[in-house]
């Protein structure tokens, strides 16, 4: 599997040993993983690199999982976020779903279940991106009729501005 085909995963958990063990296992499953131990570092690395899926622990010192979810979803529209929680109550699940989380998993969860969920989150991301790209292509095609080259560029700029 090439780097291009790997799922780019951001793992955020303040339990360093848990993070390390999980990172090693996921690497064997051909995920490209960036592990960080706090929300502040997660925001910093997400600015520099593009991730497909983030797995975020709910209870962390400093920026907690819910706050991080809000920040990541605001600045990375297609990033899917899976929340890991030691107390996966209905209230937590509802709050995270409202904020755009892909799902909430109770910790500890089985490794197979985690891999399955990450893969499903990746597929969801690709589907949303594909739909967005298809819509964009349609808009561009419709612009191409009866517009001057400068007019097309102006319309494209408007489309880009609307997506920010």
């Amino acid at each position: 599997m090439t780097d291009f085909e790997k799922i780019h995963l951001l793992m955020v958990d303040d339990e360093e040993k848990f993070l390390n063990a999980l990172t090693e296992r996921l690497k064997l499953k051909f995920f490209d993983i960036t592990p960080v131990t706090n929300g502040e570092d997660a925001i910093a690395v997400a600015k520099k690199a593009q991730f497909d899926v983030a797995v975020v622990d709910l209870q962390m010192p400093g920026i907690d999982g819910v706050e991080l979810l809000k920040i990541l979803k605001k600045s990375h529209r297609f990033l899917e976020v899976i929340i890991l929680s030691g107390h996966a109550t209905i209230d937590v699940a509802v709050e995270c779903a409202k904020l755009g989380a892909f799902t909430v998993l109770e910790k500890p969860c089985s490794f197979d279940k985690l891999v399955e969920t990450i893969t499903a989150a990746y597929e969801s991301r690709m589907k949303k991106k594909f739909e967005k790209d298809t819509n964009r292509m349609k808009q561009i095609q419709s612009l191409a009729f009866g517009q001057s080259p400068l007019g097309i560029l102006r319309e494209l700029k408007k489309m880009d501005d609307n997506e920010k």
């Binding site: 040993k17 999980l22 500890p108």
Partner: peptide
């Protein structure tokens, strides 16, 4: 919560 974290680490390390 602390015990869950401990079990999660043992579980993932044993899995590795």
């Amino acid at each position: 919560h602390e015990l869950k974290n401990i079990f999660a680490i043992i579980s993932e390390t044993a899995g590795f």
